[in-house]
């Protein structure tokens, strides 16, 4: 039967892939078929192919939602601030850690700052809701002690986006430093010695050797993160927001969730999700191309 020797040699490879291919077909490609819902008035009783087709009505409805542009704006603003903070803080802390001579001290700091990364947003939100409470939270107790006014971090819509950015930094900056620390160890020590001979001070060394040494990593991670400009962090926002802060804190993903799974407007929710996926795809593609150009980066 199988005369092709090569194919016979390849058969076990196909067999290894088979279970995963089936699962991915069903649970990743299956939902892509389900996108047809975006063009239907979906009736759960009638199913995927029995529901009436309504063309682009769902998309029209979406753009007439009173808050849609506000939500898009919130998403980009929150995600943008997170991207900037997510580069600035880890780079700064990595530079500081790199200057620490004592290894045990350095390691203890790292152990502590990596920890929040491994806790879920449910846990972290549970903690934040307690410590940020305006009545009994310890943060506001501290503010009062220092003579400041009480801040409703999770209920004041002027403050909420910043609460999101700061708490996101709390969760992720430690982990973010790992990559930059790795890049810092790659810098040739001879450069510092040469700079020393030339009489360069600490700041000059940082500016002319350290920063250029890790700039390619910074550029790479910045361009790659641009693909995330529509991801403002569903897990975090969902666990911290409330109707009080919808004006500044509602993002595309939470809007999709509420429209689809709370109000059962499946078609509209799918349409919003689809548009977001398409724009995200475009952005990821662009950022990947940029990363390839700027830093010779490839996934494989």
């Amino acid at each position: 039967m199988l005369k092709d020797k090569k194919l016979r040699r390849e058969l076990p490879l196909y067999a290894m892939l088979a279970p995963a291919v089936v699962l991915v077909l069903v649970y990743a490609y299956g939902p892509m078929l389900g996108i047809v819902i975006a063009f239907q008035r979906f009736l759960p009783g009638k199913g995927l192919f029995g529901s009436p087709w309504i063309g682009l009505d769902n998309f029209r409805f979406m753009f007439q939602m009173p808050t849609i542009w506000q939500v898009v704006g919130n998403t980009i603003l929150i995600a943008g601030m997170k991207i900037v903070a997510g580069i600035f803080v880890p780079v700064t802390v990595a530079l500081m850690l790199n200057d620490v001579g004592s290894q045990p001290f350095k390691r203890s700091i790292q152990t502590i700052i990596y920890l929040p990364h491994f806790l879920s947003w449910v846990i972290l939100s549970g903690i934040l809701i307690d410590i940020l409470s305006p009545s009994e939270g310890i943060v506001n107790q501290l503010l009062e002690l220092l003579g400041f006014e009480t801040v409703f971090f999770l209920g004041d819509d002027r403050v909420f986006p910043f609460t999101l950015v700061v708490t996101d930094v709390w969760k992720s900056f430690g982990f973010g430093t790992i990559v930059y620390l790795a890049a810092l160890t790659g810098i040739d020590p001879a450069l510092y010695e040469a700079a020393l001979v030339d009489g360069a001070g600490r700041w000059q060394q940082t500016r002319h050797i350290t920063l250029p040494g890790i700039s390619s990593t910074i550029i790479l991670l910045t361009t790659l993160s641009l693909g995330n400009i529509l991801n403002a962090g569903f897990d975090q926002v969902f666990n911290l927001y409330s109707p009080l802060v919808y004006r500044t804190g509602d993002i595309i993903d939470t809007l999709v969730y509420r429209t689809g799974l709370v109000n059962n407007q499946y078609g509209v929710a799918t349409a919003v999700g689809l548009l977001k996926s398409l724009v995200a795809l475009l952005l990821i593609g662009t950022s990947y191309k940029l990363a390839q150009k700027a830093a010779n980066y490839t996934i494989f």
Binding site: M32, G34, S277, L281
Partner: peptide
């Protein structure tokens, strides 16, 4: 599958 997904609702339905 990491570049594109059907989104929340179709995922839930599947």
């Amino acid at each position: 599958t990491i570049l594109f997904s059907g989104g929340l609702i179709p995922w839930y339905m599947v």
